[in-house]
Design a protein around this nucleic acid. Structure first.
Lengths: 210, 210
DNA sequence: CGCACTCCCTAGCGCTTGTTAGGTTACGCG
DNA sequence: CGCGTAACCTAACAAGCGCTAGGGAGTGCG
């Protein structure tokens, strides 16, 4: 009974990062949990379902994680970290002194790409967050605040550039924008409208015509 | 053992509507289910939890409803109907030929009031919808489409009034707006910002300065 | 070889889920 | 009074949940 699952060779230094080798199975469990959390929610992401998706039996999960909530917590936290990195990277890739509206478009696009196409972790941390147990939610408050701060900063740039009516509260603008982005997972169908188009329209919608 | 639960008198024509008397208990069950669906999601809204909230035992639910999903379906459907009615009523209460931006503000305010303050049914149908079983979701597709159509109409009025850049897709504007509104339940705290303020800011954000 | 360790399995614990069958109580009506 | 029915309860069913104890392969190292 060989239960090899296309594993990487363990002999020739397979770990490119500084972190511990991650063991393969751990990553697979997190991936499966992220997928289930995204598509079916917290309660439906059972330990047995996760195990089956990985190709092991229910009890074996506990060799890699101390509890279900530890898995969920790790997924949600990584989800926020992934969008954060994606948006930050997209902004840094822009030429210095790029106009704020370009920066906004790039940030929107990066957020949507993460949550809709690239990462089950990000979409899981958005969609499943509402009904997570409090213990898990507390575990990613700092990460979430950090991400919010990134957008607060971005929005304030828009005000300074005169692209938003100063009578509107910046808090409102940030909540409007992030709300619309986070909800996109509920209606997005790639064949109907591309992410580039959505990002352009969303950015244009909240900016004053120059 | 008197299990009277502050019931209305059944002798002097208690039913003001044309619908059947609704029996009291039925309504209480739906109310409890809506509350649990809003605050803890589909799986946590167990038949026993609903029954306990009403003051009866788990099995007795099935005297009033054929299944859990029948309850959930009814709650979600009513939730959409309630926002629809609220928005429609708010629009009709406006003076004829009220400016489109006033109509937008009124619609936003009505949606937020329903989903944040007035109706557990509406907030349940928004928050819990994502992970509902497919059978339940299909049961309120018509109602949801009808509500979307209302907003499509409203957005098109804004375009005709020249309040939105015609280069932006109307579909994008509707999705941006409804997304932001539906997500508001995740961050809204009445002591931080009033619904009137949110509605004004949201409306102003997507309208071109006149 | 023997030991330690990683990885996984089997079997089951105690509990909860949606749902049902059958019985009990209370009340309105003829 | 007697009957029917609505409203509720008890008790249980099979299934599923998170989680654990204990065991058995395989591997690397001394």
């Amino acid at each position: 009974m060989k239960r090899r699952t296309a594993s990487a060779p363990t002999s020739v230094a397979p770990a490119p990062a500084a972190a511990p080798p991650e063991s393969g199975a751990r990553r697979q469990i997190l991936d499966a949990a992220a997928y289930l959390l995204r598509n079916r929610g917290y309660e439906a992401a059972t330990t047995r379902a996760i195990a089956t998706a990985v190709g092991i039996k229910g009890g074996s999960i506990y060799h890699h994680f101390p509890s279900k909530d530890a898995i969920v917590g790790e997924v949600v936290n990584e989800g926020v970290r992934v969008v954060y990195d994606a948006v930050e990277k997209a902004l840094n890739a822009l030429p210095t002194r790029a106009p704020p509206r370009r920066r906004l478009e790039a940030a929107i696009k990066a957020h949507l790409l993460s949550s809709l196409e690239h990462s089950n972790y990000t979409s899981a941390s958005i969609r499943a967050f509402a009904f997570l147990p409090d213990s898990v939610r507390k575990g990613c408050r700092i990460e979430r605040r950090r991400y919010e701060a990134l957008w607060t900063q971005l929005v304030s740039e828009l005000y300074q550039a005169g692209l938003i009516d100063p009578n509107i509260s910046p808090e409102s603008v940030r909540l409007l924008l992030l709300g619309a982005l986070n909800w996109a997972g509920e209606w997005y169908r790639p064949e109907r409208m591309g992410i580039d188009d959505i990002a352009r329209d969303f950015a244009a919608s909240i900016l004053r015509a120059k």
